[in-house]
Structures are given as structure tokens and as C-alpha cells.
Design a protein around this nucleic acid. Structure first.
Lengths: 259, 259
DNA sequence: AGGACTTTGCACGGTTCCGTACAGCAACGT
DNA sequence: ACGTTGCTGTACGGAACCGTGCAAAGTCCT
């Protein structure tokens, strides 16, 4: 399992913590922070700060994408919904990415609901047309945005495999890790009911799985919160559905920051 | 369910059947066929025909992408593998798309195994560098390729939802439809063992599910084959995890062909 | 025709997970 | 203090699905 441990060392959060270039101090979004001054300059005039509350919709499935969001704080769930009311999480986006990638891929509508999952979400938003214009001007900017979409896609593939092959306990460990990677704290604020949506299971199965993770001392579960206690143990539990997309993210989007 | 029936009418296969422009006679790949003469001209000099046998690898997970393939005949399974030997299908690609899209998204390695699932697979292949050069020259070509990747991604999202929410029988109906869309016949050559991989279930569960689909007269299952008998019934069984990505495909990639 | 091999049908007990229901407990307002 | 609301723990029977093993049936080769 030495490969997995090495991923921890190169995890996106660590890379950002270590970073101290001036631009990257100013913006909390890692993608924006990784842009060249020129590329950032293309976007900067159009960026405006916005904030979200828990449950706020950032985009709605089927709606035209009018703006894209670079999250700086908080974490968003990407949900695919069936015709009935049930919705299932297909991914998470935090400060490591942006919301609205279908635009860069040639679609003007969002296939997903994207909702804020954290208490105070903050983002930099810009109009769709401005982004498309910027992307047409700068191949490197386009590359960065496309690479994020690609990593997200790889992530989704692992979600498929995970839901086909793994028990609820393992899948839960994976989602906790994905969440943990994207918030800047060991405290994950999420009720069992919210976990239920991500995993597509019934609420009490979440309770049971959390208990088992707690027995293994990987986490501590308190009311409406999960405290990450032992990341290494979580990774061992999650197995091989966690790790590879994270490596891809570092390889494709933080090549110059790996020291 | 009238919306679903209307999708059938606008299904990619139908659009191609109706088509009779000269270029589109010559190439069996729908993406290539939909390109403008100029865009097609950028690719044509580099395209060389190749053929594949069942089980042949078109790309291997982790390997550099040296060429991309536009399938003309046959159908390929996109597989994500765990560290052990188990592999699970995350999608299918036939003549409606191409293999190697990570290249266009800024990655030079394939995250997936892609293997030929049909008896005689035929494709037009071109070197990675040539494709990248062509894409840099033509924004519209890039758009087409990205849009395919996007629809494939939406497809994957539905696969997640389907595996979380639906019974084996429903998921099976969905995969049969996806397969049926991509081959030009009502005869699907696939053993229960191969279905097993796509669905991530045990082989005898496939047998049972096929029997239930057969009881409803949606299909007929014979040795190593499934005969699609009633597409409408399959769509009703598959429910809402089938249909929307197919509509997106038509909307984004065949806008000018819908009559 | 006979044998080897692949594919399919079926059955067994065991496990995971579901749907549902209800009770205990924490947080919060008044 | 009190009730209200939201979150969590637990229990029950039942359904879906698993792993396994084996027999029947189809296909192919010689």
C-alpha cells in the first residue's frame, strides 16, 4: 500500500498549503491560482464574488448555463436526478475545480443539478460568454479547464466501479475522502440524510456504516458531523477506487507545483 | 411516455439511415460523417483502416494514447479496472463516437481499457499528434470531438444513477438499448459472461434477468445472442436512465440532420 | 459419431441491503 | 421549563443478490 501513502503526500490540499506565490494567496480557487498571469488576466475583469447557503442551487439540470463558478470555499454536490424526486450524487466539486464545464465542452445546458453542501459557500463567478471568449483566446486556459473536466470524468468512472463492486462501508470511506480532500478541515458537516443521497442507500445503512468506520477508529461521528481521524485507514478501507483520479489531478493540473 | 417514443424516431441510427450526402456514404463513422468537408479534409490524409477481433485491446489503462480510432463497425467496451483482475464497463462506444477522447481533453494517457466487443471491428485510425494538430487548426472539429466526450460523460452519470437505483433487470434493459443503438442490427452477440462484466453482477443473475425480459417479450435470448424484439418495452423497463443522453447526442452532434 | 469445450439453467444457503417503524437524544425557540 | 423539530440509533421481516456447484444443452473439432 505504499503507493497510496505517497498520494497523500501529493494531495491537492498539501500542494496548496505549501504554495506561496503571490497570486495564489489572493484567490482561493486552485485552478485560478494555477493559471499563468496572462490567463488569469483574461478572466479577472469578469470575476465577481458570490456566496451560497446550504442547499442553494448553483446550476439546475436542463437550464442554460449562464455563468460559471470557481468555488473558493465550500463544496458542491453534482447530482443526477431521475424523473421522480430521487437524486443521486455523481461527484463533488470544491476549490480544486469549477462548475460549468459543459460549457467548455460545447454544451450550453447543464445536465446536472449542482448544489452547495457547506454552510458558507464562496465563489468567483463570471458570465458564460466572457468565459467562452477567454477560452477562445487562450489555448492554455482551455487546456486547464478541460483537464479538470477530464479528471472529474475519471472520478465518475471510479464512482461507477465503486457502486458496482464495493460495500456501503467502502463506498462511504471513499466519499469521506473525496469530501475531505475538498474542505480545508478534518470536520465534515453532513447529516446521515445527506450521505444517503450520495450513496443511494437508506438512511439507517449510513448510520450502520459510520459505526463500522468508527469501530475501526478511522473517523468519529458526532451529530451532523464526521471527524476524519485516520486518513490512511480510510484509504485502506476505500481500496482502489480512491487514489488514481487524485494522482491524475496532480499530474495534469499541478505539475509545476510538485516541488 | 410520448417523449421516449419520439427519441426513437430521432435515434442516431435513423438519422444516418436517412442520410445520403456523398461523404457520409464513404465513412461509416457518424462523427466523421458529420464533419464539414474542410474538417474532414484535415483528418482524411492521416486516417488508415484497421480491424479488430473480439477482445482486442484498443487502448489500455495507463498507456500513452498513441492513436485515436473512429469505429466504423463493431462496438467497444470502455472498462475501468480495479487493482485485482475485476473490470467493469463504464460505457460503450460504437460508430457514433471515437476512442481516445482524453487526448482532446489534455491527457496523453488512457484512464480506461477499451476492448472490442463485436466479431469484426473496423475503424479508421490516426496518430495522436496528427489529431492534436488538426484540432488546433479547427475550432469546429474540436467542438465536435469535445461534444462527443461530453455526451459520453453524461452517459456515465446515468450509469452511476442506474447502478444505484435500479434492479439488475432494469439495468440490463438499459445496456441492451445502449448496445442496440450502436450496432446496426437487432441481433446482439453477447454471452451472459460478457453481460456480467458490464453490470458487475454474477453470471446467473444475468441469466435470470434475461429470462424476465424474455417473459415480457422485450427480447429473445438464444445462445450467445440477444434478439431485440420490442424496443419500446425495453425503454419502459429501463426507465429514465435511458433517453436523455441520447437526446443530447442528437441535439449537439446532429442538429443539422434532424430534418 | 464421439469427445472437448462453451454456454446456459438451476438450486442451495448465506449475506447485504431494503422499507418501515419507532424511540431516544440534541438543538432551538418561546 | 416546555414543546417542537431535526438527527440518530435500533429493530423486524423481506427482497435482492451473492458465491458456489453442478447438470443440461449447444457448438466445434477430429
Amino acid at each position: 500500500m505504499s503507493t497510496i501513502v505517497s498520494i497523500t503526500g501529493a494531495t491537492p490540499r498539501a500542494a496548496v498549503d505549501r504554495d506561496d506565490a503571490p497570486v495564489e494567496r489572493m484567490v482561493g480557487n486552485w485552478l485560478l491560482a494555477s493559471l499563468s498571469p496572462d490567463d488569469f488576466g483574461l478572466l479577472a475583469p469578469h470575476l465577481e464574488p458570490v456566496s451560497f447557503a446550504v442547499g442553494d442551487f448553483i446550476t439546475r439540470a436542463g437550464d442554460p448555463i449562464e455563468s460559471i463558478c470557481f468555488l473558493e470555499q465550500g463544496i458542491a454536490g453534482v447530482l443526477d436526478s431521475l424523473d421522480d424526486d430521487r437524486r443521486y450524487a455523481v461527484g463533488l466539486v470544491g476549490a480544486e475545480g469549477f462548475i460549468g464545464w459543459p460549457l467548455v465542452m460545447g454544451d450550453d445546458r447543464s445536465p446536472y443539478d449542482v448544489t452547495m453542501r457547506a454552510e458558507r459557500g464562496q465563489a468567483l463567478r463570471m458570465p458564460a460568454e466572457a468565459l467562452l471568449a477567454a477560452v477562445d483566446q487562450s489555448p492554455t486556459l482551455r487546456l486547464t479547464l478541460l483537464r479538470f473536466a477530464h479528471v472529474f470524468m475519471v472520478q465518475m468512472g471510479r464512482t461507477v466501479v465503486s457502486s458496482l463492486a464495493h460495500s456501503i462501508e467502502r463506498r462511504m470511506a471513499r466519499w469521506i475522502l473525496l469530501y475531505h480532500d475538498r474542505v480545508q478541515a478534518d470536520e465534515i458537516c453532513m447529516t446521515h440524510e445527506e450521505f444517503r443521497l450520495m450513496l443511494g442507500v437508506r438512511r439507517s445503512s449510513v448510520t450502520d456504516a459510520l459505526h463500522r468506520l468508527e469501530e475501526e477508529h478511522a473517523i468519529r461521528a458526532v451529530r451532523a458531523k464526521v471527524l476524519v481521524h485516520d486518513r490512511t485507514k480510510l484509504m485502506a478501507l476505500a481500496g482502489d477506487t480512491y487514489g488514481q483520479p487524485e494522482q491524475d489531478y496532480v499530474r495534469l493540473l499541478q505539475m509545476d507545483r510538485r516541488r
